[in-house]
C-alpha cells in the first residue's frame, strides 16, 4: 500500500515540478510575469494569458488521455476541431440565432466523428493510428465542403462568448476546461469507467477474460475525445469569429499527444490522469512563453519542443533509467573503492 502511494506521488511529482521550474524561470527573466490585475470584472496578466491560450490543447489533452489509456491514439482531433467550427459557422451564417442549436451542431459533429473513430478502432479492430488517420485526412476536406472552400466569418455575440467572454473573472475557455475536467474526472473516477479504461489499455486479453466489453469502452473514449475536440474547435472559431477549415486546429493533435506524454502517461496504455494531461498542456504553453520571454527567437520553438519530447521519452524509458542508475552504481562503486 505504501509502495503504491509512493509511486502515485512520484507520478505527480515530475510534471508538477517541471511546470514549477518553468514558472520560476519565467518569473526570474520577467518579474512582471506573476502580476495579475483585476480590471472591468476580469483578471488580466501573463498567467491568465497562459491559461487562456492553453485551453484548446488542454481540452484535447483531456480526451486524448482517455484514448491513450486504452492503448490507442487519436490523430483526427485537429480535423474534428475544424469540422465542429465549420458546423457552428454553417448554422450562424444560415441565420440561426438559437445558441443551443449552434453549439449542439458543433458537439454533434464531434460526436459523429468520435463514433466513426470508435467503430473503426473498437468494432473493426483497425490500428488506432491508421483508423484516425482516415478522418485526419478526410476531415479537413469535409470541413472545407461545409465552408464551401472559404474562410467563413460571422458575428454572433452569444457564440463569440465561448472564445472571448469571461465568467467569474476568468476567460470563458478556461472555465470550459475546468467544467470539462470536473465532468470527465467524475465520470472516470466516481464510476468504474476509469478502471475499465485502464484495464483495457494495460492488458487487453486479461480484461477480455474478465468480461469487459472492450469495444464499447473504446467507442466511449473516442466519443469523449470527439466531444472535447468539438468544444476546442468551437472555442477556436469563436475566438477569431470565423471558421478556417485549413488552419483550425492544425497540428494540435501532436500538441495534445505531447501534453499527455509529458503528463507521464505511457503510449502503450494503462494508467492515466487527466489532471496530469492538463498540467502537460500548461507546460507546453508556459514553455512557449518562456521562449518568447527569454528573447530566443520564436523560430527556435519547434527545436526546443522536439528536444523536450526526446528528453521526456528518454526519462520514461526503462532502459535509459537502467543506464542512468548503472552510471550511479559505478560512480558509487568507484567511491567505495577509493575509500
Amino acid at each position: 500500500m505504501n509502495l503504491t502511494k509512493n509511486q502515485n506521488l512520484r507520478r505527480y511529482l515530475w510534471p508538477c515540478a517541471g511546470l514549477l521550474v518553468l514558472l520560476i524561470i519565467n518569473a526570474i527573466i520577467a518579474p512582471e510575469f506573476f502580476h495579475i490585475e483585476f480590471k472591468d470584472g476580469r483578471f488580466y496578466g501573463s498567467l491568465i494569458d497562459v491559461l487562456n491560450r492553453a485551453a484548446p490543447v488542454a481540452l484535447l489533452a483531456i480526451g486524448m488521455a482517455l484514448v491513450i489509456a486504452t492503448g490507442g491514439v487519436d490523430l483526427s482531433v485537429g480535423s474534428i476541431m475544424a469540422i465542429a467550427g465549420a458546423a457552428s459557422a454553417y448554422y450562424i451564417t444560415k441565420g440561426v440565432d438559437n445558441l443551443a442549436i449552434i453549439i449542439g451542431a458543433g458537439l454533434l459533429a464531434g460526436l459523429i466523428a468520435g463514433v466513426i473513430n470508435g467503430l473503426l478502432v473498437g468494432y473493426m479492430s483497425i490500428q488506432p493510428i491508421v483508423a484516425t488517420l482516415i478522418l485526419m485526412v478526410a476531415g479537413r476536406g469535409i470541413a472545407q465542403l461545409m465552408n464551401e472552400g472559404q474562410i467563413v466569418t460571422f458575428d454572433h455575440a452569444g457564440f463569440s462568448f465561448l472564445g472571448t467572454g469571461d465568467f467569474l473573472g476568468l476567460p470563458f475557455p478556461v472555465v470550459l476546461v475546468i467544467i470539462t475536467f470536473i465532468i470527465v474526472q467524475l465520470l472516470t473516477r466516481r464510476t468504474a469507467l476509469g478502471l475499465y479504461i485502464e484495464a483495457v489499455g494495460a492488458n487487453p486479453s486479461a480484461s477480455h477474460y474478465m468480461g469487459l466489453n472492450a469495444k464499447a469502452i473504446k467507442m466511449s473514449v473516442y466519443c469523449v475525445a470527439g466531444l472535447c475536440a468539438a468544444l476546442a474547435g468551437m472555442i477556436a472559431a469563436a475566438d477569431i469569429k470565423g471558421s478556417d477549415a485549413n488552419n483550425a486546429g492544425l497540428w494540435l493533435e501532436l500538441d495534445a499527444i505531447l501534453a499527455v506524454v509529458i503528463g507521464g502517461a505511457s503510449l502503450m496504455g494503462g494508467r492515466f490522469s487527466i489532471f496530469l494531461a492538463v498540467i502537460g498542456a500548461l507546460i507546453i504553453q508556459t514553455l512557449t512563453v518562456t521562449i518568447i520571454l527569454s528573447g530566443i527567437p520564436p523560430k527556435f520553438n519547434l527545436l526546443i519542443k522536439a528536444s523536450a519530447i526526446i528528453i521526456v521519452l528518454l526519462m520514461q524509458s526503462p532502459r535509459f533509467q537502467q543506464q542512468l542508475s548503472q552510471l550511479n552504481f559505478w560512480s558509487k562503486k568507484k567511491e567505495s573503492n577509493r575509500v
Partner: peptide, 20 residues
C-alpha cells in the same frame, strides 16, 4: 535501443527537422 514507439520518435524527428 530504448524500445520506444516509432510513432512518437519520428514525431519528435519531424518537429526537430522542421524546427532546424
Amino acid at each position: 535501443y530504448y524500445k520506444m514507439q516509432p510513432f512518437i520518435v519520428t514525431l519528435a524527428g519531424m518537429f526537430f527537422a522542421r524546427g532546424l
